[in-house]
Every structure is written in structure tokens, then in C-alpha cells.
């Protein structure tokens, strides 16, 4: 938010003015910059290495000499991945899951957090709901009972099994609730004067004012859906309906040689799956890398309003 940025700027300027650069302090500064640069690099190097692998030929990969730059440059691995309907399909299912999952979650979140942000007098169900939420946060049925419920609902083996459970994150709900409480009441009053009912107030006043927190929640939920592999494995009947991460588990699992058949071994010897693996991982990571920098400015607001990290 603008005010935060402004504050930070002032702070930095103030400190800049005050700091006299003694040699020790200079050394100190260099040290900090170096360490931070190394840390920053450490977070990106594995991915650069992976990109290098994905563009490399199989011989240098086998020899283990590819580091951060492709050797025997080629794009076969990408062609291979993009030529595979199975991979493309898994990718598409993940995209669909994120889109549907995020829309479901956000609707549910806003719809629940809004009444909760109001007084108990206005919404007498609030105390009961909050108690239930706390109890729910403290208990858990575990994998097996959850599966039985899903099966009883007839959701297993359907796409909905991927997006419906976990639709309402209780923790996020508290965060959004807190955010709503800080929205200035004058705006709401003005809307009411115009004859809006509370649903309209929520849509017209609260949601536009809560873009940072909603964007953050959308990002967290979206990343959660994109990265989840377990529910795909548990609930989907056919491997062709697996979301990308569940599909990738098969790709990144290195084969155990003693259990391979001769035919499988031959196949494995012919293709160095490592570059294909790398290419598929890169493709799977790209969407997140593209989206998150745009939402980065909202993180801080989104995360800090609840008071703790999410």
C-alpha cells in the first residue's frame, strides 16, 4: 500500500542521511550485499541449472558436466514434452483446477468472512460459526475418514474432488475478516443511504477496497492448487485425469534398476530422461513464475494483516 511504501522510503532516506561511511561500515555493507547476493543466487541457480539441463544433449548430462549453461544445445526435450498429449492434458487439468478452485475458494471466503466481520447483533450466527471454526481447526478426521466422506458424496473420481475439499480455508477466513473490519464505515454508510443491501455493500464497497488481501488469497490458493499432487493421486480414477503435479511424480521418480524389465531398461538407456524431466519441470514452474511477481506487491498487506505469516 502506498503509505507503507512511503514510510519505507522515508526511513531509508533518513538513515542514508545519518550514515557516515567509516571503513568498517563500508566493509560491513559489502559483506551484507555479498551474502544477500549469494542467498538470492542460491534461490535461482537450481532453476538455471535445470534450464541448462533441459536444453542439453544427453552425453554431457550423463557425464554430469552440465552446470549453468546448456551443452550441445537442443530443444528436443521441449518438443518431446509438447508433443505428449498426456503432459499437455495434465497441464490443462491443472489450469482448470486453479481457475475453478480459486473462484470457488474466493467466493466462499468473501461470502463467509463478510458476515463474520459484522457485529454479533447484525449477524447472530457469528458466535456459533466462530466456535465451529475453532473446533474444526483443532480437529481433523484424517485421510481415511475424509475419503469416505468424499466417496459418500459421490465426489471421488470427479474433477470436483480436486476443488471442493479445502474450499474454505479457515485461517484465510480470519485474515479476510480482519481486513474487512478495517474498512472505513463511512463508505458503507454512504452505500446504505443509496439503498444498497448488505450483499450489494459487500460487492460494491468491500471487495473493491480489499483487492490486496483478495489478490494475496487468490495467489496462495492458486499456488496451493497448482502444487498439490496428493488429492489427484487419491481421488482421480484415471491417470489421464491427473493434474500436472501428480503426473510429474511419475516423471521425476527415478527408476529402480532391479525392478526394470529388459525392455524398460533398453528404453531408459536410449533416452536420457533427465533433460525431458528438466523440461517438464520447467514448463510446470513457468506459470507460477509468471504470475507471482505481479502479485508480489500485495503479499505484504495480505500476509501482515492477519498479524502472522500464512
Amino acid at each position: 500500500m502506498a503509505t507503507t511504501e512511503q514510510k519505507e522510503k522515508n526511513l531509508v532516506m533518513t538513515r542514508n542521511r545519518q550514515i557516515r561511511s567509516s571503513p568498517v561500515e563500508k566493509l560491513f555493507t559489502i559483506l551484507i550485499y555479498t551474502i544477500l547476493a549469494i542467498l538470492g543466487a542460491s534461490c535461482i541457480i537450481p532453476f538455471i541449472h535445470l534450464i541448462a539441463l533441459s536444453f542439453s544433449g544427453s552425453d554431457p548430462i550423463k557425464a554430469g558436466v552440465v552446470s549453468l549453461w546448456p551443452m550441445e544445445f537442443n530443444t528436443d526435450a521441449y518438443k518431446y514434452a509438447l508433443d505428449h498429449p498426456a503432459f499437455i492434458r495434465a497441464f490443462g487439468i491443472s489450469v482448470a483446477r486453479v481457475v475453478v478452485g480459486v473462484s470457488f475458494s474466493l467466493s466462499m471466503l468473501v461470502l463467509t468472512a463478510y458476515p463474520l466481520s459484522k457485529s454479533n447483533e447484525a449477524c447472530p450466527l457469528n458466535p456459533l460459526f466462530k466456535v465451529l471454526m475453532i473446533v474444526a481447526m483443532l480437529t481433523g478426521g484424517g485421510l481415511i475418514p475424509m475419503y469416505l466422506v468424499m466417496s459418500w458424496l459421490g465426489l471421488t473420481n470427479t474433477f470436483w474432488a480436486l476443488v471442493v475439499p479445502g474450499m474454505l480455508s479457515l485461517w484465510n477466513c480470519f485474515m479476510v475478516m480482519n481486513f474487512f473490519r478495517n474498512v472505513p464505515s463511512e463508505l458503507e454508510e454512504a452505500a446504505i443511504v443509496d439503498g444498497a443491501n448488505s450483499f450489494q455493500v459487500m460487492v460494491k464497497v468491500y471487495i473493491p477496497l480489499s483487492v490486496p488481501v483478495i489478490a494475496s488469497m487468490a495467489l496462495f490458493t492458486g499456488v496451493g492448487h497448482w502444487n498439490d499432487w496428493f488429492s489427484g493421486m487419491l481421488y482421480m480414477a484415471r491417470s489421464r485425469d491427473y493434474p500436472l503435479q501428480t503426473y510429474l511424480r511419475q516423471v521425476v521418480t527415478t527408476p529402480n534398476f532391479s525392478s526394470l524389465t529388459i525392455e524398460e531398461m533398453q528404453k531408459y538407456a536410449q533416452i536420457t530422461s533427465k533433460n525431458n524431466q528438466a523440461a517438464q519441470i520447467i514448463i510446470a514452474t513457468v506459470p507460477i513464475m509468471c504470475v507471482y511477481p505481479f502479485l508480489q506487491k500485495y503479499f505484504m498487506t495480505g500476509l501482515t494483516l492477519g498479524g502472522v505469516k500464512g
Partner: peptide
């Protein structure tokens, strides 16, 4: 009591 608010909690 705002019944609309209450209704919004039903899905929850």
C-alpha cells in the same frame, strides 16, 4: 439482525 448476512453464512 441482518438476515442477508445470516444467509451468506449458510454455505459456510
Amino acid at each position: 439482525t441482518d438476515y442477508m448476512l445470516c444467509a451468506m453464512l449458510i454455505p459456510g
